[in-house]
Amino acid sequence: MKSKKETKKPLLEIHDLFASTENLTILKGVNISINPGEIHAIMGRNGCGKSTLSKIIAGHPSYEITGGKIKLSGTDIEPLEPEERAQSGIFLGFQYPIEIPGVSNLEFLRVATNARRKFLKKEELDTFEFEDLVKEKLEIVKMEPTFLNRSINQGFSGGEKKRNEILQMALLEPKIAILDETDSGLDIDALRIVASGIKKIANENCGIILITHYQRLLDEIKPDFVHVMANGKIIKTGNSELALELEKNGYEWTDKFIDKT
């Protein structure tokens, strides 16, 4: 895989990205480039800008890009609405998936899947075709079909919510999946299910960003690159060894890499 990488065009390019919310600058020049098939981990202290970065890529309206560029397969995505970004293949797995009472999970998944399929110029699925598809994908996250009849995330346990995110990722087959602390709040069994789900979905055409605090997810899914973020910037990039070093020494050890200027 590594040898091919050089010939591939990057899927996602983030170039000198600045962003703010409510006049507070949160991202201060982020650079990252992800090729197809790569798995990147982003680590860093709480409040360093990891979640903000993921929301900005997905187009959250509370944040404003004040400088730099985000490109998906060479196209600037800034003018795109969140739904257009999703349709073109950006997926954000939320740290705290929100509950939406009254809206059936099944209907939601079907509408979302068809929106993506429409963009890909694939035929939209009717109720029956979709049920077949979703049952197949449920296996990946070991969820019961009864799960589909409930309202979106309503009354789901922490683990169920995260598995529902991975189910969505499986259905939408994104180009770039950003998984924001998908491992947080999971017990060991749930973590294994989620991690194995991600591995099954990952393929050579898709790039994955794992935002995490913990080595235990990275034990399950070995990243190609590990980035350490601090103060709105990526201050150090390495391979999976870097995560182990962080685990041993803590974030204080990376403070020396912060550009004081």
Partner: peptide
């Protein structure tokens, strides 16, 4: 806003 964003971020207008 967050509920709307959740649905939008799955490609729903």
């Amino acid at each position: 806003e967050d509920q709307l964003f959740y649905l939008q971020s799955r490609g729903i207008e």
